[in-house]
Every structure is written in C-alpha cells, then in structure tokens.
Simulated assay, not measured.
Amino acid sequence: MNTKERLQILYDTELKPQLAEMEKMRRFVKRWRAFAITSLILAFLFLYSDYVVLRILGGAGFFAGAIYAAVLALRTYNKYHKQFKTEVVRKVVHLINPDYKYNSAKHIEVYEYNKAALFKCKAERCIGDDLVFGKIDKTPFKFSEVKTQYKTTTTNDEGKKVTEWHTIFRGLFFFAEFNKNLEGQTFVFPEKDRTVTNFLGKEKEESRIHGELVKLENPEFEKIFSVYSTSQQEARYVLTPLMMEAIVTIYNTFGFKMYFSFRGENVFCAIPFNRNLFEPSIKRSGVNFRDVEEMYMLFGLIKTLVQEMNLNTRIWTKSWN
C-alpha cells in the first residue's frame, strides 16, 4: 500500500468524520465573527448620528454586541484550533512516523536558527509553532514553522524611542545532524536569489560573507542553485554528485525555493512561505482531503530531505553512539 492510499484511508476513516464534526465550530466562529464586525461598523455609524440618544444607545449597544460576539468567536476558535492540532495534525505526523514527537505550541529556538547563518541579519526573536522532532534511523532532526525578526530602535520627532520589528524569514525551517563535523561552512542559495546576485546575475559584494563562489560539475544543479563556501575542497566533499542529484530531485518534486547551509555538525534548510501552514481555515470548509494531503506532503518533506540527501549513510569519520 503506497503512502497516498494510507493517507486516504486515514482521512476517510478518522479525519473526515472528525473534520465534519468540527465544521460546526468553524461555522459558529465565522457567523459570530461576521456579527462582531458588522456590530462594530454600526456602532461607529451611530456615533456620527445627529441625535444624542442614538449616539449613546445605538453606539453603546452595538459596541457591546461587537464585544460579546468577538468573545464568543474567539473562545470557540481556540477550542477549534486546539482540536484541529490534536485530532488532525498530530495524526498526520504520526502516519508518517509514529515515533516522531509533535508539539503544536513549540518551535525552533532562535539560537538554533542563527546557527544556520543563512541570512545577512541575525535574528533576535523567533515566533512559530508545530515543532516536529525525532530521529530518522540514526539522524536526529528538528523541523517547525517559524518567523524570525530583528529589531531597530529610533527616536521620533517628540524625542521618544520607537522600537520596530522586521521580518527576516518566514516559512519552514529544518535542521539535522550531518555525518561529519565540518571545519568550514558551505551555503546553497537559489540561483535567482537577489540577496546574493543583482539583476544582471552577478554576485553582490556582501555575498562574500558566505565565502567564495564554488563552481560544480552538475549543470542542472548550477541552473537552480549558487554555492558559496569558505573551503572549495570541503564544498565538493559535502556536495557530492549524489547529494546534488538529491537536492535537484527534491526541487523538481516539490518546486520549493530552498536555502541550505552545512556548518559544524548540522545541515540546515529554510523554505520560505508567505502564509500560515498547518492551521484550520475559517473562511472555507475544513472537510477537504487536499488540505490534509498538503499537510502530509510538507511534514513528509523532512523524511525526504534526510533520506534523499543520504544523511543516514555515515561514511565519514565522525563516531556515533
């Protein structure tokens, strides 16, 4: 039985009935959220009435109604969200591998993210959820959705300090133990990434912080990715022909923009997304196999990365317990 058949059986026998039952909560949230928004609009309209009584009674009444509706919607949404994570997301993760650990509230820590050194700015805080961790054969890994940020502090015209948070990366972030403690560091960027090249395709001066440009002997890989390393020799040691073929296969299969770094004893991978993942929808029905299938594919990407990149073949000199 292939993975899609197993997922379809899980969906038909367990997930679909649960999602259908949870649909009542989704509709409740959607209805009361709409009522809250409508009441708030009406409250503001009454505030502009020419009649004092209407301004007081109408404005206050609809404003109170908006608060009541918002509280009802929020309470129900929190229940819906928790149940979705427990009853749906957790089961999808366990279908991939029952030994994986899943925590809907936790995420990759900021110090773990900064170890990758993939982006120019160092993160000062990390927000996220849906942490998955465990081992694939002998390879420990962690994986979660994250949004990383750095802050700037300026002084406004009134002399007050203003702190702003700026997003560096938003998406899926994964790391696993590599099968050697590397002395240098090697980075793999999307070829069209404008943070390392200009519009003419020439590398920017600031990209040199990642080392020298490395030319490799895989034309298809070179069309998709650019490689920078502090050691030309070690970059070729890491990015073997099989490793490059595996990364190209992953790219061709999923079509995601991917960033890799090989540093110390870890391989890191960052995949940008501009939307929340693994979250229940309020706008449309949650009884949808395609949503579950996408969730399975994204979580299953961990296993694909480790296996395709051959991390479990420990051919180098590092000793393992």
Rank of each mutant, 00 (worst) to 15 (best):
Gln18Gly: 11
Phe63Cys: 09
Lys24Ala: 14
Leu42Pro: 01
Tyr77Val: 00
Glu164Gly: 02
Ile67Lys: 00
Ser49Ile: 11
Met295Ser: 03
Trp32Arg: 13
Val110Ile: 13
Leu57Thr: 01
Thr304Leu: 05
Phe63Pro: 06
Ile67Met: 06
Gln18Pro: 07
Arg6Met: 07
Asn252Gln: 09
Lys215His: 15
Ala69Thr: 11
Asn78Glu: 15
Arg314Tyr: 15
Asp291Ile: 05
Phe35Arg: 14
Ser104Ala: 14
Tyr68His: 09
Tyr251Thr: 10
Lys223Thr: 14
Ser229Tyr: 10
Glu294Gly: 04
Tyr237Glu: 07
Ile127Ser: 05
Thr186Val: 08
Phe260Gly: 01
Phe62Val: 13
His107Phe: 03
Val306Pro: 01
Phe46Met: 12
Glu164Tyr: 00
Arg275Gly: 02
Phe254Lys: 09
Tyr68Ser: 11
Leu298Glu: 06
Gly184Cys: 06
Asn276Met: 11
Lys257Ala: 15
Asn274Phe: 13
Lys204Arg: 14
Phe169Ser: 09
Gly65Lys: 09
Arg27Val: 04
Phe256Gln: 07
Lys192Phe: 04
Leu40Glu: 03
Asn321Lys: 14
Pro280Gln: 04
Thr76Tyr: 11
Gly171Met: 02
Lys161Gln: 08
Lys24Trp: 13
Lys303Gln: 08
Glu124Gly: 12
Arg170Gln: 15
Leu239Glu: 01
Asn2Phe: 04
Lys30Asp: 14
Lys303Ser: 07
Val214Asp: 00
Arg90Pro: 00
Glu308Trp: 08
Ala36Arg: 02
Gly61Arg: 03
Ile271Trp: 04
Ile250Asp: 02
Ala246Glu: 02
Leu311Pro: 01
Ile247Tyr: 04
Phe187Tyr: 15
Gln185Ala: 08
Trp316Leu: 10
Glu14Trp: 13
Ile41Trp: 09
Phe289Leu: 08
Ala34Ser: 15
Thr38Val: 15
Met1Trp: 03
Cys126Gly: 03
Leu305Ala: 11
Phe260Asn: 01
Tyr237Asp: 07
Pro140Leu: 10
Thr155Pro: 02
Asn198Cys: 06
Lys120Glu: 12
Phe189Cys: 09
Pro190Cys: 15
Lys257Cys: 14
Ser104Val: 13
Tyr237His: 06
Ile271Asn: 02
Arg194Ser: 14
Asn252Ser: 07
Ala64Leu: 11
Phe35Pro: 03
Asn198Pro: 05
Gln8Phe: 03
Tyr100Trp: 07
Tyr111Pro: 00
Asn288Thr: 08
Glu293Asn: 08
Glu203Cys: 01
Tyr11Leu: 07
Lys106Pro: 03
Leu239Cys: 04
Met1Arg: 03
Met258Glu: 07
Phe278Cys: 03
Leu72Lys: 15
Lys215Cys: 13
